[in-house]
Amino acid sequence: MEANNHKFTIPLNDDVEQQTTTLELEPKKDMTDYSKRSQWLRAAVLGANDGLVSTASLMMGVGAVKTDIKAMILTGFAGLVAGACSMAIGEFVSVYSQLDIELAQMKRDKQQQQQRGITTSPSSESEEGEKESENLPNPLQAAAASALAFSAGAIVPLLAASFIREYKVRVGVLVAAVTLALIVFGWLGAVLGKTPVVRSSVRVLLGGWLAMAITFGLTKLIGSSGL
Protein backbone atom coordinates (compact mmCIF):
# COMPACT_ATOMS: atom_id res chain seq x y z
CA MET A 1 0.00 0.00 0.00
CA GLU A 2 1.55 3.14 -1.14
CA ALA A 3 1.11 6.33 0.78
CA ASN A 4 -0.03 9.30 -1.19
CA ASN A 5 2.34 12.21 -0.87
CA HIS A 6 0.42 15.41 -1.00
CA LYS A 7 2.17 18.76 -1.33
CA PHE A 8 0.49 21.76 0.18
CA THR A 9 1.31 25.22 -1.10
CA ILE A 10 1.07 27.99 1.46
CA PRO A 11 0.34 31.31 -0.26
CA LEU A 12 2.61 34.13 0.75
CA ASN A 13 1.49 37.70 0.78
CA ASP A 14 4.27 39.35 -1.21
CA ASP A 15 2.75 42.79 -0.81
CA VAL A 16 2.85 42.56 2.97
CA GLU A 17 6.46 41.37 2.95
CA GLN A 18 7.52 44.10 0.56
CA GLN A 19 5.77 46.75 2.62
CA THR A 20 7.39 45.48 5.82
CA THR A 21 10.81 45.42 4.20
CA THR A 22 10.30 48.89 2.81
CA LEU A 23 9.27 50.25 6.18
CA GLU A 24 12.29 48.67 7.83
CA LEU A 25 14.69 50.06 5.23
CA GLU A 26 13.31 53.59 5.34
CA PRO A 27 15.68 55.91 7.18
CA LYS A 28 14.45 57.47 10.37
CA LYS A 29 13.44 61.06 9.96
CA ASP A 30 15.15 63.75 11.95
CA MET A 31 12.65 64.76 14.61
CA THR A 32 14.88 67.40 16.24
CA ASP A 33 13.05 70.59 17.07
CA TYR A 34 15.52 73.21 15.87
CA SER A 35 13.29 76.04 17.09
CA LYS A 36 14.45 75.21 20.64
CA ARG A 37 17.94 76.24 19.62
CA SER A 38 16.85 79.67 18.50
CA GLN A 39 17.30 81.45 21.83
CA TRP A 40 20.83 80.37 22.74
CA LEU A 41 21.90 80.26 19.10
CA ARG A 42 20.74 83.82 18.53
CA ALA A 43 22.61 85.03 21.63
CA ALA A 44 25.83 83.22 20.71
CA VAL A 45 25.89 84.26 17.06
CA LEU A 46 24.82 87.81 17.86
CA GLY A 47 27.47 88.18 20.55
CA ALA A 48 30.31 86.82 18.42
CA ASN A 49 29.26 88.79 15.37
CA ASP A 50 28.87 91.96 17.42
CA GLY A 51 32.33 91.53 18.92
CA LEU A 52 33.87 90.93 15.51
CA VAL A 53 32.18 93.78 13.67
CA SER A 54 32.33 96.44 16.38
CA THR A 55 35.98 95.82 17.25
CA ALA A 56 37.05 95.63 13.61
CA SER A 57 35.10 98.81 12.82
CA LEU A 58 36.76 100.64 15.70
CA MET A 59 40.19 99.55 14.52
CA MET A 60 39.38 100.53 10.92
CA GLY A 61 38.10 103.90 12.09
CA VAL A 62 41.28 104.67 14.02
CA GLY A 63 43.35 103.30 11.15
CA ALA A 64 41.69 105.79 8.83
CA VAL A 65 43.40 108.72 10.57
CA LYS A 66 46.35 107.07 12.36
CA THR A 67 48.72 104.54 10.86
CA ASP A 68 50.34 103.73 14.20
CA ILE A 69 49.89 100.07 15.11
CA LYS A 70 49.84 100.87 18.83
CA ALA A 71 46.83 103.17 18.49
CA MET A 72 44.92 100.58 16.48
CA ILE A 73 45.64 97.72 18.89
CA LEU A 74 44.80 99.78 21.98
CA THR A 75 41.54 100.85 20.38
CA GLY A 76 40.64 97.27 19.55
CA PHE A 77 41.50 96.05 23.04
CA ALA A 78 39.45 98.80 24.65
CA GLY A 79 36.57 97.89 22.37
CA LEU A 80 36.86 94.22 23.38
CA VAL A 81 36.79 94.94 27.11
CA ALA A 82 34.06 97.57 26.93
CA GLY A 83 31.91 95.49 24.59
CA ALA A 84 32.23 92.30 26.62
CA CYS A 85 31.29 94.13 29.83
CA SER A 86 28.38 95.84 28.10
CA MET A 87 27.08 92.58 26.65
CA ALA A 88 27.40 90.77 29.98
CA ILE A 89 25.66 93.49 31.99
CA GLY A 90 22.93 93.95 29.42
CA GLU A 91 22.25 90.22 29.20
CA PHE A 92 22.28 89.86 32.99
CA VAL A 93 19.72 92.64 33.46
CA SER A 94 17.54 91.36 30.63
CA VAL A 95 17.52 87.72 31.76
CA TYR A 96 17.03 88.72 35.40
CA SER A 97 13.95 90.71 34.40
CA GLN A 98 12.66 87.65 32.53
CA LEU A 99 13.34 85.51 35.62
CA ASP A 100 11.36 87.90 37.84
CA ILE A 101 8.43 87.78 35.42
CA GLU A 102 8.39 83.97 35.30
CA LEU A 103 8.66 83.64 39.09
CA ALA A 104 5.81 86.09 39.56
CA GLN A 105 3.69 84.15 37.07
CA MET A 106 4.43 80.87 38.86
CA LYS A 107 3.36 82.46 42.15
CA ARG A 108 0.10 83.68 40.63
CA ASP A 109 -0.60 80.23 39.17
CA LYS A 110 -0.16 78.58 42.57
CA GLN A 111 -2.44 81.13 44.22
CA GLN A 112 -5.12 80.49 41.61
CA GLN A 113 -4.86 76.74 42.18
CA GLN A 114 -5.27 77.24 45.92
CA GLN A 115 -8.32 79.45 45.37
CA ARG A 116 -9.91 76.78 43.17
CA GLY A 117 -9.21 74.12 45.77
CA ILE A 118 -6.77 72.19 43.59
CA THR A 119 -4.35 70.26 45.78
CA THR A 120 -1.35 68.16 44.83
CA SER A 121 0.66 65.58 46.73
CA PRO A 122 3.96 66.70 48.27
CA SER A 123 5.95 64.36 46.00
CA SER A 124 4.33 65.60 42.78
CA GLU A 125 4.65 69.19 43.96
CA SER A 126 8.36 68.64 44.62
CA GLU A 127 8.86 67.12 41.15
CA GLU A 128 7.03 70.00 39.49
CA GLY A 129 9.13 72.48 41.45
CA GLU A 130 12.36 70.81 40.29
CA LYS A 131 11.24 70.84 36.65
CA GLU A 132 10.23 74.48 36.84
CA SER A 133 13.56 75.40 38.45
CA GLU A 134 15.47 73.65 35.64
CA ASN A 135 13.52 75.57 32.98
CA LEU A 136 14.07 78.96 34.60
CA PRO A 137 16.62 81.25 32.93
CA ASN A 138 20.02 81.73 34.58
CA PRO A 139 21.19 85.39 34.51
CA LEU A 140 24.80 84.62 35.43
CA GLN A 141 25.09 81.90 32.82
CA ALA A 142 23.59 84.14 30.15
CA ALA A 143 25.92 87.02 31.07
CA ALA A 144 29.01 84.81 30.96
CA ALA A 145 27.99 83.29 27.62
CA SER A 146 27.40 86.71 26.06
CA ALA A 147 30.73 88.08 27.28
CA LEU A 148 32.56 84.98 26.05
CA ALA A 149 30.89 85.09 22.65
CA PHE A 150 31.67 88.79 22.22
CA SER A 151 35.32 88.23 23.21
CA ALA A 152 35.65 85.32 20.79
CA GLY A 153 34.57 87.54 17.92
CA ALA A 154 36.59 90.57 19.01
CA ILE A 155 39.85 88.64 19.32
CA VAL A 156 39.91 87.93 15.56
CA PRO A 157 40.76 91.47 14.32
CA LEU A 158 43.12 91.99 17.25
CA LEU A 159 45.18 88.92 16.41
CA ALA A 160 45.09 89.72 12.70
CA ALA A 161 46.61 93.19 13.13
CA SER A 162 48.87 92.70 16.13
CA PHE A 163 52.04 91.54 14.35
CA ILE A 164 52.03 93.59 11.14
CA ARG A 165 53.88 96.89 11.11
CA GLU A 166 53.21 97.92 7.52
CA TYR A 167 49.99 99.96 7.51
CA LYS A 168 48.50 98.89 4.17
CA VAL A 169 49.33 95.24 4.72
CA ARG A 170 47.86 95.43 8.23
CA VAL A 171 44.58 96.87 6.98
CA GLY A 172 44.40 94.29 4.19
CA VAL A 173 45.03 91.39 6.56
CA LEU A 174 42.48 92.82 8.99
CA VAL A 175 39.78 93.00 6.33
CA ALA A 176 40.61 89.51 5.06
CA ALA A 177 40.50 87.98 8.55
CA VAL A 178 37.22 89.68 9.38
CA THR A 179 35.74 88.57 6.05
CA LEU A 180 36.65 84.96 6.71
CA ALA A 181 35.29 85.12 10.26
CA LEU A 182 32.01 86.66 9.07
CA ILE A 183 31.54 83.84 6.58
CA VAL A 184 32.30 81.24 9.24
CA PHE A 185 29.86 82.81 11.73
CA GLY A 186 27.15 82.98 9.09
CA TRP A 187 27.78 79.36 8.06
CA LEU A 188 27.84 78.15 11.66
CA GLY A 189 24.57 79.84 12.53
CA ALA A 190 22.93 78.41 9.43
CA VAL A 191 24.16 74.86 10.05
CA LEU A 192 23.10 74.79 13.70
CA GLY A 193 19.73 76.31 12.93
CA LYS A 194 19.15 74.33 9.72
CA THR A 195 18.65 77.46 7.59
CA PRO A 196 20.02 78.28 4.10
CA VAL A 197 23.81 78.50 4.38
CA VAL A 198 24.58 80.81 1.46
CA ARG A 199 21.89 83.32 2.32
CA SER A 200 22.93 83.48 5.97
CA SER A 201 26.64 83.84 5.18
CA VAL A 202 26.07 86.56 2.59
CA ARG A 203 23.79 88.51 4.91
CA VAL A 204 26.32 88.44 7.75
CA LEU A 205 29.20 89.29 5.41
CA LEU A 206 27.50 92.28 3.78
CA GLY A 207 26.43 93.63 7.16
CA GLY A 208 29.97 93.47 8.51
CA TRP A 209 31.46 95.08 5.41
CA LEU A 210 28.91 97.87 5.55
CA ALA A 211 29.66 98.63 9.21
CA MET A 212 33.41 98.78 8.60
CA ALA A 213 33.04 100.89 5.46
CA ILE A 214 30.79 103.45 7.15
CA THR A 215 33.06 103.73 10.19
CA PHE A 216 36.19 104.04 8.06
CA GLY A 217 34.61 106.58 5.70
CA LEU A 218 33.11 108.85 8.34
CA THR A 219 36.23 108.81 10.49
CA LYS A 220 38.38 109.59 7.45
CA LEU A 221 36.10 112.47 6.52
CA ILE A 222 36.08 113.98 9.99
CA GLY A 223 39.83 113.46 10.41
CA SER A 224 40.65 115.10 7.11
CA SER A 225 38.49 118.14 7.93
CA GLY A 226 40.61 118.90 10.97
CA LEU A 227 37.81 118.52 13.56
Rank of each mutant, 00 (worst) to 15 (best):
L80M: 14
L80S: 04
V81W: 11
V81Y: 10
A82T: 14
G83S: 12
G83F: 10
G83Y: 13
S86G: 15
M87C: 12
A88D: 06
I89V: 15
I89G: 09
F92S: 11
F92G: 10
V93I: 15
V93N: 04
S94C: 07
V95Q: 09
V95T: 15
Y96G: 03
S97M: 11
Q98M: 11
Q98F: 01
Q98P: 01
L99C: 02
L99Q: 10
L99T: 03
D100R: 15
L103V: 02
A104S: 14
Q105M: 12
M106K: 10
D109H: 07
K110N: 01
K110M: 03
Q111W: 06
Q111P: 00
Q112S: 06
Q113H: 04
Q114T: 09
R116L: 14
T119K: 15
T119P: 00
S121A: 15
S121I: 07
P122C: 12
S123D: 09
S123E: 12
S124L: 12
S124I: 09
E125R: 14
E125W: 07
E125F: 09
S126R: 10
E128M: 11
E128Y: 04
G129R: 05
E130R: 13
E132A: 13
S133F: 10
S133D: 11
E134I: 07
L136V: 02
P137I: 05
P137H: 06
P137F: 04
N138V: 03
L140A: 08
Q141D: 03
Q141T: 06
A142D: 05
A142I: 00
A143N: 10
A145Y: 03
A145D: 02
S146G: 13
A147W: 04
L148G: 00
A149H: 01
S151L: 04
S151K: 00
A152P: 01
G153F: 01
V156Q: 09
V156D: 08
L159S: 08
A161M: 14
A161Q: 13
S162A: 14
F163D: 09
F163L: 12
F163S: 10
I164N: 06
I164E: 13
K168F: 10
V169G: 03
R170I: 00
V171C: 05
V175K: 02
V175C: 01
V175S: 05
A177I: 00
V178C: 11
L180F: 12
